[in-house]
Nucleic acid binder design. Structure first.
Lengths: 153, 153
DNA sequence: CTGCCTGCAAACTCTTTGCACGAAT
DNA sequence: ATTCGTGCAAAGAGTTTGCAGGCAG
C-alpha cells in the first residue's frame, strides 16, 4: 500500500473508532510506516522523536495496538522478550517469518497454504480459526560456513 | 515416553552435563512430567512445593531450561507474556499449537509437513533451518454458538 | 467547553542474577 | 573437602497504568 493510502486508512480508522487525530499519533504513524525492516517499540520511539520530540514512550505503546488493529502494522513475536512490528504494504497475504538464531534478523516469506492449514486443523478440533503464524528458526549460511553471522560477527 | 524412562533420561542428561542430582531437581522433574496440560513456571512451582516445600522459584526457572534441553519438555510461547511447558511423551513428532483466543487453552496437533516447509523456505533464503513452529489462533465453537467459552464464561 | 490524549513516573509481570549458606560427590 | 546448587531478595527488561494538565473536536 502506498504511503498516502495508508495515511488515509489510518485517519479513517481513527474516525471510525471515535479516536482523535493528534500530532503524536500522526508522527508515530509516519515513522512506523517509513520503516523498511522490523522494528521494536523502543526503536520507533527514537525515530518518532526526530519528527516530533514531544512523543513519549507511553504514547508509542498506546498507538501500536491501534495501528495493528487497523491492519497497518503486523506484530511479530519471535519469543525474544520484545515484540517487532512491520508495515503491512501488501494486504491479505499470509506470511511466515524466518528468524536467524545468530543475529535475530527477521525475514518474511509468503506462505499461502497457512490459511488452509489453519482451517483444516481448527475444524478437526471443533474450533473456528482466527489467524495463524509460522516461524522458522535458522542459521545464516554464513554462520554454517564460517561460524559467524554477518550481523553479529 | 513412560515416566520411568523419562526419569532415567533426566538422570542421564544431568550426568552427561556434570550436573548434580538434587532433591529439588527431582521434585521439579516429577511434578512437571506428571502434568497432562500445558503449565507455566508459576504453576509448576506451586505443584512442586507440594512434593518438596523447599523448592524455590529461582530453582524452577533454573531447571526448566535443563528439562527443555534434554527434550523432556517442550517450551511453547504463545505470545501472552509467559511461557508454557508440556511433557514430551512422543519423541520426534512435529506439532503445531492451536490456541483458543477466548480462554488461552492450548491444543497440540501433529503437523509433519512443517519440517519440510522449514527446509524449503530456509533454503530459498540461503539459510540452514533449525526448527519451526506453527501456531493457529481460534475461537471455541462454543464461543461461536453462544458467545462464551467453556473455560471463561 | 468537554472529555479524550498526553507525558511522566511509578507499577506490573515474568524472568534472571548476586550472594552466602548448604548439600551432592 | 570441594564445588556446585540453593533460597532469598533485588535487579532487569519490556510493557502498562494513574494522574494532572493539554489540546482536538
Amino acid at each position: 500500500m502506498s504511503l498516502p493510502a495508508a495515511r488515509e486508512k489510518f485517519r479513517e480508522f481513527l474516525a471510525l473508532k471515535g479516536l482523535r487525530v493528534t500530532n503524536q499519533r500522526l508522527a508515530i504513524f509516519e515513522t512506523a510506516y517509513a520503516q523498511k525492516e522490523h522494528f521494536t517499540a523502543e526503536q520507533l520511539l527514537d525515530h518518532a522523536r526526530k519528527v516530533d520530540d514531544s512523543v513519549s514512550r507511553a504514547t508509542v505503546y498506546r498507538t501500536l495496538p491501534i495501528m495493528t488493529q487497523s491492519a497497518l502494522l503486523r506484530e511479530v513475536d519471535i519469543g525474544s522478550g520484545e515484540k517487532y512490528y512491520l508495515p503491512i504494504r501488501d494486504s491479505g497475504t499470509q506470511v511466515a517469518q524466518v528468524v536467524c538464531v545468530d543475529c535475530d534478523r527477521i525475514f518474511e516469506i509468503s506462505a499461502p497454504f497457512m490459511e488452509w492449514y489453519g482451517s483444516t486443523v481448527s475444524s478437526k478440533l471443533g474450533l473456528t480459526p482466527v489467524s495463524q503464524r509460522l516461524q522458522v528458526s535458522a542459521h545464516c549460511n554464513a554462520w554454517r560456513d564460517t561460524g559467524s553471522c554477518p550481523r553479529r560477527g
